[in-house]
Write a protein that binds this DNA or RNA. Sequence first.
DNA 1: GGCGAATATGAAGAAGTGTTGACAAACTTC
DNA 2: GAAGTTTGTCAACACTTCTTCATATTCGCC
Lengths: 389, 389
Amino acid sequence: MTDGAVAGVDLPRLRELNSLTIVRALRDHPPSTVTELSQRTGLSRPAVDLIAQNLVADGWATVIEAGTSSAVGRPARRYQFRSTAGYVLGVDVGVHKVLALVADLNGEVLHSHRAAVAADADPQARLAALDEAIEECLTATKKKPADVWAVTIGVTGPVDSSGRTSLFTPLPGWDQVDLPAHLAGRFSCPIIVENDCKLAALAERWKGAASDASDVIYVLAGMRIGAGLILDGVLRRGYGGAAGEIGALKQVRWLAAPSHLENCPGVPASVSPDDAAAWVFEAARHGDRAAKTAVSRYVKDLAVGAAALVLALDPQVVIYGGGFSRSADLVLAPLTAELQRLCLRVPEVRASTLGADSVALGAIRLALNELDNRLFSTTLSSPAAPTVR
Amino acid sequence: MTDGAVAGVDLPRLRELNSLTIVRALRDHPPSTVTELSQRTGLSRPAVDLIAQNLVADGWATVIEAGTSSAVGRPARRYQFRSTAGYVLGVDVGVHKVLALVADLNGEVLHSHRAAVAADADPQARLAALDEAIEECLTATKKKPADVWAVTIGVTGPVDSSGRTSLFTPLPGWDQVDLPAHLAGRFSCPIIVENDCKLAALAERWKGAASDASDVIYVLAGMRIGAGLILDGVLRRGYGGAAGEIGALKQVRWLAAPSHLENCPGVPASVSPDDAAAWVFEAARHGDRAAKTAVSRYVKDLAVGAAALVLALDPQVVIYGGGFSRSADLVLAPLTAELQRLCLRVPEVRASTLGADSVALGAIRLALNELDNRLFSTTLSSPAAPTVR
DNA sequence: GGCGAATATGAAGAAGTGTTGACAAACTTC
DNA sequence: GAAGTTTGTCAACACTTCTTCATATTCGCC
């Protein structure tokens, strides 16, 4: 409840704080004039001017000299956040693929690469695919590892404080993999490993279906069901990183739910087990009776866990995402109805708008958040020391 | 994700920030010398000296002139947070009683008063008891309503943003009661209504069994079971104030759980229904077979909901509190065992140390938190305008 | 094409805040 | 009583921001 050491602010620190303020005011905005920044921050024009010049000297901002302007009066010089000062990597290590993204400090994705992996691939093979995907992203964008300021990797299963998925993982042999150690040799920046559902939740809140909400439950629906929680605008990991793992409770039927789709009668033998669910959804869409029943049962089971989360946390929005979100048209209405039956106060239910990229995008967002905390909370300084979480 | 308007810091604001820093450094510490404050805040001695004198002039601190000192050197003047500058009221409106507490700005409880109420009393009677309890606390401590800077009232059931328990309440007619309106005439300070479980959780984290933890699930166990959630050190209300209401899910057997105790065979007819649970616990403690079974079943049902919360949020500690916490000796071990069976990562399970006062104490804490936010976040100013939450 | 209005830039002076260093005051210890 | 130590106070200094004014550049209008 107490801070213990509360730090006073002296003059140099004041300048630092205001520099941070200007950087924040520069980000997430189009190139701005000194006057605009002055209005945005409440600081006087000369103060902003001085700070902006220093930011340019330190590489945090670039100048756009006055061009032709449409307004009356002398055209203003504009300052712009130098989003190319550093880059971040976001990677989604899935069962069938590894997807890597490079983005600049604005979160603009510059390049992506997808490497296919066999579901039963051993850790070595999967790590090789990871290395390949990262390597391809770097060479395609002509970046060196030193240009990367943070890396986030999304994996399935709860991630502990050492970056391992020791409690549970569907990837064979993966519980022994130490991802930060694997990458530490190549990158000297922060390397973060995080649960895929949590990352997807971040992505939806960033530029997806939940961008207007601060209390979000993201349900990742696929052959495995998981959840990510955002409360008061912040991703909640839980004390041991296992928040959202409601599926482990037997009374909540998340473990069994996908079997309704897998074992649905009428699925042709030619359809592989991996594609069975998609087939069932498609069949249900065309009125197949057995398929409709299977979907209905699936939704009923899904709803129990979602209701438990909703009742526990009372969110504003529930996002239905993951591989099955393509079938949101079949699921959203009955899911909402079930929640209405089970919950006290029913949140909005929406379909994911980011689809398959959400995990990697969320990884980008988490990497940027980490940088924010490191660079902007204390002082403006370039890439931080390597750390693991 | 963005702040929108990020405020720059000018010189007067700098002084304000440092004044706040000094006030914070003064609170939660014994009377301090300027040198101590200087070390604690990193500010220079003259700066602290000046600020401290201003704080005294504004009524936020008092001076203790140098007495005889045991150390070498000139004895130092000491400054002390003036905790008697204002007071807060915390009230617990329960089924059988209304308990009111007055505390100073340090959270030191000065007086408490308990007014008995019949379980089936109508809102008028209950409000009269509330008024009586508050009145008694004020007269006993010789305070006027104007001395009260914040009031918090704890009630059963989820509290919406208008301070009403419209979704559910066990108190007859209480869903129509507008507590802020009822008190607004007498107090011009912030009046907050909050769910009792949430307040009890706050109390346990403040000075109870969870004072070392930042991620806490508090389970209030009585004839009605509820929960309060503290995540990252902050009480979470949920978007609509209904966080923690996992008991509403049928698969979670919290609604039915107490019936095992109520309907336990062997309870003498002389024991009133209200005391049945206590009798069963006592009988179980002495080896009564039926009572032990009842307790065991109760714990099993309780554990399902607790497990759902634990899996959803992955807390560090679960606090077992409420009326039944006196029987923690019988419950803690089997509850822990059940959680071990049901959960992925098992948190510590502890018994409440505050007992029956926890709700009113939590109300005090929430009132103080509200004051903190109002007075200390923006600027140092005396009692704020009346508001409702 | 010239003029005025509007906006941006730049520089100087003023005000406010924190820091450093010095010194007297007050107390303990030898 | 002298030395040593800590405190309270003061003045000089450094730094940051604010205010104000003069200057520069551009557009629109005559």
